[in-house]
Amino acid sequence: MSKVSNEVGARHPPGARYLREFGKPVPRERGDFTWVYLWGAPLRIMHWVAALCIVALVISGLYVGRPYFATTGEASAHFLMGKFRFVHFTAAAVIVMTGIVRVYWLFAGNAFERLPALFPMSPRNMRSMFKVMRTYFNFQTQDQPHFVGHNPLAQWAYTSVYLLMTVLVITGFTLYGQSAPTGFFYHLFGWVPGLMGGLQIVRLVHHALTWAILIFVPIHIYLAIRADYVERAGIVSSIITGGRFVASDDEFEDIDLAAGKSRPWPAE
């Protein structure tokens, strides 16, 4: 699928001179690449707000779970735990709002963002998922199936994170509600301790899932950067600008560039 040559055509971009000077092949024609807009603004804003919230929540949450430094002197002179709890509860409220935006966008977003896209479980998708997994183990990146959006393995990981966050929010607000037994959250999540077998179990689940997030974050960042490195298609910037570059002649599992329309996995 090579469309490169060392000839310099009439319609070459100015950058071609530099490519030649460095001994690099110069693309023959313009328009071999298409910029595909994937992620709507609400999704991108949600992503970054949630990312900041997760940083704040993990730092403050680990302190609330196990205070790693303490104050001395008169108690009235300090409010350390109070401040950490304030940060934790505020970030929690914000991340719930991003969740609400995401739920809305499950119905208002494009084909890559809608609810069905979260569950790529057709046989073809399952095969693709195992192919992706295989290349993660044998490093034969050329065998990896190409996707404009998320590959099914990545999508399942993100869907799991959504579920994880839902459980974290429910257990978190259950614990939060305990301080006001006549309040809204106490009644809204009153069923949770009974279901899980006691408040301490709720606490344990909330705490353990924090570690699950801490395991997810480095893997997520790594694989995003790795995809950029391997595919060189501006994938990391797609969560900032909303789009990425795709080669027109590349074969994608989830989009038909020639037909000019996407065919995300659930449609199969």
Partner: peptide, 9 residues
């Protein structure tokens, strides 16, 4: 290829 093509774009 992706690299060069990106350069063109």
């Amino acid at each position: 290829e992706a690299h060069e093509n990106a350069g063109e774009n």
